[in-house]
């Protein structure tokens, strides 16, 4: 064995990992090579000194100091963590909750005729039929729930009929869009599109 081959064996010995190294050959070598033997002895001393580096004691107020520095966790932390971890789930659940509340409210409503307009005085109501009389002009949007709408006059705005039909002589009688909603899923879609107006302001951008 050559002297330059011994160093890696010495360190493998210190790492307790001499498998695959010609350790016996190395031991034979250092019997006769004073230089390598000295190197090995010095390394073993180094190893021993390194292992005997004493533990230093941590300052006694270490934990106290640390605990004082910790940012105070608010009671909301858990909810916040949830929000951060599952934003989609949280958003979906809030949506679903609001939605089912409004759906239930809707389902529980009776089938009473409802009219939303700024110009109610110009309308004629017969049973569950609402009529825009000939020669009359409704300014603004018109929403009819649970009834039919008959337009003989004019509407300067959007017309929406929920759970009913729209009857009109010709399309030019309505200035804005007309919408007829008479099925549940359409009602749902309608509400979806208008959801943002139903969300209380603190949910938006909050």
């Amino acid at each position: 064995m050559k002297c330059h081959e011994t160093e890696s064996i010495m360190h493998a010995y210190l790492d307790d990992d001499i498998d695959g190294y010609p350790y016996q050959e190395f031991l034979e070598h250092i019997k006769t090579c004073h230089k390598c033997k000295k190197h090995f002895e010095e390394l073993k001393i180094t190893e021993r000194l390194l292992k005997q580096l004493p533990m230093v004691s941590t300052p006694p107020d270490f934990v106290q100091k640390l605990m004082q520095q910790l940012p105070q966790k608010e009671s909301k932390t858990r909810i916040k963590r949830w929000l951060v971890k599952y934003p989609v789930v949280v958003a979906a659940s809030i949506f679903l909750l609001l939605f089912s509340i409004s759906l239930v409210t809707y389902m529980e409503q009776d089938n009473e005729l409802k009219i939303v307009t700024t110009d109610q005085a110009k309308l004629i109501v017969k049973g569950n039929e609402v009529i825009v009389p000939e020669g009359k002009k409704i300014i603004g949007d018109l929403i009819i729930e649970n009834g039919n709408l008959k337009i003989n006059g004019e509407v300067k705005g959007n017309v929406t009929v929920i759970n009913g039909d729209i009857l009109m002589a010709n399309a030019s009688q309505v200035d804005g869009h007309t919408k007829q909603i008479d099925r549940l899923y359409e009602w749902i879609w309608y509400n979806l599109k208008n959801l943002w107006t139903k969300i209380p302001p603190y949910f938006i951008g909050g």
Binding site: H39, L43, T46
Partner: peptide, 12 residues
């Protein structure tokens, strides 16, 4: 580790 030990060995 080998280089570190060798350095310290030489120092001492």
């Amino acid at each position: 580790l080998l280089r570190g030990r060798e350095y310290i060995r030489k120092e001492i």
